[in-house]
């Protein structure tokens, strides 16, 4: 029994069958990649997992509880954090404030009327925030406006914001999309480091085979809304069905 269990999920958009009978099981503590050519239903699946879309049929269980019908903030409070394709951060706030917010969210839940306390007097929370910034090598940038960061730094910051919540599952939506090779390698290193230092489960949706094979322990291949195969990276590499699905698309 995995930490995330997707069973028999179907999702149609009008006549388009975006997801057909998808079954997926992500084991605790592993890095699980979901790959597939364009239009395979990767993003739809992710949006189902975070509560943005509701599947027509099927069940999604996380940590023994159903996520269906819950709002994104409730699903996050269950322990799923998400990294977006383009980094989503609070661009008007400082880098430190960006990581303070998830710290408060973890301690105080979805809403708390703490209007008469002072952020500066929250000792533990500030320490936690400083620590995570140090972990992602951004401590010296703590007072910068987050909007002024480079794209790579925005990605690191978003990662820090997710990690500081100590999620049980970290969802990454094409974390290297549109990045230069050097930035991609930096991101891979960062993710590897996270994987080594923290007991974290990750599910990565990715296009870039280089990223997938550097990180993943299990790979699910989606094509036309259905999982083709699920296996270890070594077996996936030579799998004929995968070659067929990707024909000419990538150097598998």
């Amino acid at each position: 029994m995995g930490i995330l269990e997707v069973k028999g999920v179907n999702k149609n958009f009008g006549g388009l069958k975006a997801l057909q009978d998808v079954n997926l099981s992500v084991q605790e503590g592993t890095v699980h990649a979901i790959i597939g050519p364009n239009g395979a239903g990767k993003s739809t699946l992710l949006n189902v997992l975070v509560g943005k879309l509701r599947p027509d049929t099927g069940s999604v269980m996380f940590d023994g509880k159903s996520v269906l019908g819950r709002k994104p903030h409730e699903i996050n409070q269950m322990g799923i954090s998400r990294v977006f394709q383009t980094p989503e951060i609070f661009t008007d706030l400082s880098v430190l404030e960006n990581v303070l917010i998830p710290c408060f969210a973890r301690r105080d839940g979805a809403f708390r009327m703490h209007a008469f306390e002072s952020v500066a007097h929250e000792g533990t929370i500030n320490e936690e925030a400083e620590q995570i910034l140090a972990d992602v090598n951004m401590a010296d940038k703590r007072n910068l406006h987050a909007g002024s960061l480079s794209r790579g730094d925005k990605r690191r910051l978003e990662m820090a914001m997710c990690l500081v919540q100590q999620p049980k599952l970290l969802l990454l939506d094409e974390p290297t999309a549109g990045m230069a090779r050097a930035d991609t390698n930096n991101t891979i290193d960062l993710l590897k480091e996270i994987k080594e230092t923290r007991p974290i489960t990750m599910a990565i949706i990715e296009h870039d085979m280089h990223v997938v094979f550097s990180l993943a322990e299990r790979i699910t291949v989606l094509a036309q809304g259905t999982p083709l195969v699920e296996d270890t990276p070594e077996n996936i590499k030579g799998h004929p069905k995968v070659r067929e699905a990707y024909l000419g698309e990538a150097q598998v």
Binding site: K71, E88, F90, D92, I101, A115, V119
Partner: peptide
């Protein structure tokens, strides 16, 4: 002033900055 400097005030500024990120950070 107290509201501006409180965690509550920080959340309000976060609402303005990126409501989308806020909900994916577990805040309503």
């Amino acid at each position: 002033i107290r509201i501006f400097r409180s965690p509550f005030g920080l959340m309000l500024r976060a609402v303005k900055s990126n409501n989308h990120r806020l909900s994916y950070t577990g805040l309503n």
